[in-house]
Each structure stands twice: as structure tokens, then as C-alpha cells.
Amino acid sequence: MSADRLIYMANQIGKFFQSQGHDKAVAGIAEHIRKFWDPRMRKGIFAHLDAGGAGLDPNVREAIETLKKA
């Protein structure tokens, strides 16, 4: 799936959690992506992260990193 679309969706999730503070936000974003994204979408965003992760907001980037490690 196109990286732009995945980045947009991930950042959109990030904006909802933004006001909950860093720790809650990172955990919330990671959980949301784990619960609702099909594996090929997660694979796509991980690949984008490996390629530098341009365009991902900081909390979102961190959430995807934790998700990737898990």
C-alpha cells in the first residue's frame, strides 16, 4: 500500500492521542495500529520506518518503533 497513505493514517491517529501526553500517546498509537491494521499495512509502515521514516510525527514514529520491536 502506498507509503504516503499509511503515513497520513498513522499521523492522523497520532493527532488524536497528542493531547494525552507523550507516554500515553505512544502506547495508544501503538495499540491502535496493532489492533486495527492488517499485517500488510503494518509491514508497509515498518518498511517505511526502515527507509528513514520521513514524514512520521515524533510520537507516531516512536510508537511504530516499539510496535516493530514487539
Partner: peptide, 13 residues
């Protein structure tokens, strides 16, 4: 055990 595609994701895929 993995979630599947939602309708808009199906279109993108």
C-alpha cells in the same frame, strides 16, 4: 489471529 483489511484498505490494497 491478525486483523484483516477494512473496506477502504481493501481498495488501496
Amino acid at each position: 489471529p491478525e486483523p484483516g483489511l477494512r473496506i477502504p484498505n481493501m481498495f488501496d490494497a
